[in-house]
Amino acid sequence: SEFSSRSGYGEYVQQTLQPGMRVRMLDDYEEISAGDEGEFRQSNNGIPPVQVFWQSTGRTYWVHWHMLEILGP
Rank of each mutant, 00 (worst) to 15 (best):
Q14D: 08
E2P: 13
M67D: 12
S7G: 13
G58S: 06
E69H: 03
Q42K: 14
R41E: 02
L68N: 01
R22H: 06
V23P: 02
L17N: 05
F40N: 07
S4L: 07
S4Q: 08
T57C: 11
Q14Y: 05
D36T: 05
P49S: 00
M67A: 05
N44W: 15
E39I: 11
T16V: 08
T57Y: 14
R22A: 04
Y61N: 10
L26T: 10
Y61Q: 14
F53Y: 07
H66G: 05
V23T: 05
G35W: 00
T16E: 08
P19W: 03
S56Y: 03
M25G: 01
F40D: 00
G46H: 12
V52E: 07
T16F: 13
V13M: 15
P48C: 08
G20R: 04
G46C: 15
I32C: 08
R6C: 15
S5D: 14
G8F: 10
Y12N: 10
S7Q: 13
Q51I: 02
V63R: 03
I32T: 01
R24C: 02
S56P: 05
V63K: 07
R24W: 02
P48H: 01
P49V: 00
Q18W: 01
D27H: 09
Q18L: 12
L17G: 02
D36W: 11
E69Q: 00
Y61L: 13
T60K: 03
N44C: 07
Y29S: 06
S33A: 15
I70W: 00
F53A: 09
W65C: 02
E37M: 04
W62G: 15
S1D: 15
Q14M: 12
V23R: 00
Q15D: 09
E2R: 10
Y9R: 08
G20P: 09
V63P: 06
P48V: 14
S56D: 01
R24M: 04
L68Q: 02
V52S: 02
Q18T: 13
G20W: 07
L68Y: 03
V63I: 01
G46D: 07
P19Y: 07
P48S: 06
L71R: 01
G46V: 15
P19T: 09
M25D: 03
Q42T: 11
P19K: 02
L71V: 13
G35T: 00
P49G: 11
Y12E: 13
F3Y: 10
G46R: 15
A34G: 04
V63H: 03
G20N: 04
Q42I: 11
S4C: 15
W54N: 09
W54V: 04
E11R: 14
A34T: 05
Q55C: 05
V13C: 12
P19D: 07
E69D: 06
E2L: 12
G10H: 05
I32M: 08
D28G: 01
P48Y: 13
P48K: 04
Q55S: 11
F3W: 07
E69S: 10
A34Q: 12
Q18A: 08
T57L: 13
V50N: 06
I47Y: 15
E39V: 13
I32K: 10
R6L: 11
E39G: 00
M21N: 09
W62M: 11
D27R: 12
M67F: 03
D27G: 07
L17T: 01
Y61I: 07
V52M: 07
S43Q: 09
Q51V: 04
P73S: 06
R22M: 09
E31C: 11
R22D: 07
Q18I: 12
F40R: 08
M25R: 02
N45R: 10
Y12P: 04
V63S: 00
L68K: 06
